[in-house]
Design a protein around this nucleic acid. Structure first.
Lengths: 167, 167
DNA sequence: CGGCATCCTTAGGGATACTG
DNA sequence: CAGTATCCCTAAGGATGCCG
């Protein structure tokens, strides 16, 4: 099979979708830097305090600080004040719903990395908590069909005719 | 719900999985730069010739050249010689199976970008060719269950007991 | 402990010019 | 058309030091 995405309709979707208006590109911007990725990964692992982030990511404090601030400004992390007795008020950083929604991106990355460049093979994997089975990110349509790589069409939003591939 | 990933077992999986041995981080390395992402996106759109890549991505030729070479070296693109009459032999660049397998990553990015930062809203979407329904990247386990963000366990590979979350 | 300011090094990427 | 080589600018990120 070939995973080329078929394009249909009058306009070349790339014209609408290239450069700044591409949702993939914009999403990638959020995760793209090594530091942002590491901070988010540790957030998924449950880190909440500044020092946890700095220590677990291995990032310098200035970078950790900058990334936490940016991610909070973008709405991906939420600051939550806390106070330990005798200490001043500090901030916790938690994933917002927007941040949690990044999980499929991370799982997709993990699946690909595990399959294709796992040397040395990671000794760790993600499982479904309820049944213990291994996780994967799957491509499915709203009808519930598993979608193979050559069954994608890129179409104008809202068009309701079933698109016909030019190929 | 919270999407914190539960960690189970004797070893802290992060110790095995942090830094260089993290499959997510390694996967991200491949797509991370703006140029690599754009080249891959156009490959999914069906670009094969050098000039197509340079033109559609808007990247300079040197960068296009470097990225095509790197992606080919990494096994994500494959060079394929072709010759037009009277011309010297040139190369086409096609996605390998390894490259095609990146599709869920792109779809996951797209879904997130569409949901959370689509302003202006993209007028384009991905559909299932056969039924016309909109696509999404879903988290499912090998048993076929849809997995919510708080139902993940990070466990040592191959452990066969159903893990119990410490939380 | 939880940060911010400063400085410096390196990697990403554009412009331009050149080659087969 | 399909690239390379060179040069330069900018952004990512570490080290160090300071401050509440």
């Amino acid at each position: 099979m070939t995973s080329t995405i078929h394009m249909t309709g009058a306009l070349d979707p790339r014209d609408d979708w290239s450069a700044d208006n591409c949702p993939m590109a914009r999403a990638l911007e959020v995760v793209r830097t090594r530091s942002a990725f590491l901070v988010l990964r540790e957030a998924f692992y449950g880190a909440t305090r500044f020092e946890e982030f700095a220590e677990r990511t291995g990032l310098s404090e200035p970078i950790t600080s900058a990334r936490l601030k940016e991610l909070a400004d973008e709405g991906i992390l939420r600051r939550e004040p806390y106070q330990e007795p005798g200490q001043r008020t500090r901030q916790l950083y938690r994933l917002t719903e927007m941040g949690e929604d990044l999980l499929p991106v991370f799982v997709a990355l993990m699946g690909w990395g595990d399959k294709w460049l796992a040397e040395p093979r990671s000794r760790v994997e993600l499982r479904h908590h309820d049944c213990g089975a291994v996780l994967a990110a799957e491509l499915r349509c709203a009808e519930g069909h598993l979608v193979a790589g050559d069954e994608l069409d890129l179409v104008a939003r809202g068009a309701n005719s079933v698109p016909v591939s030019p190929a």
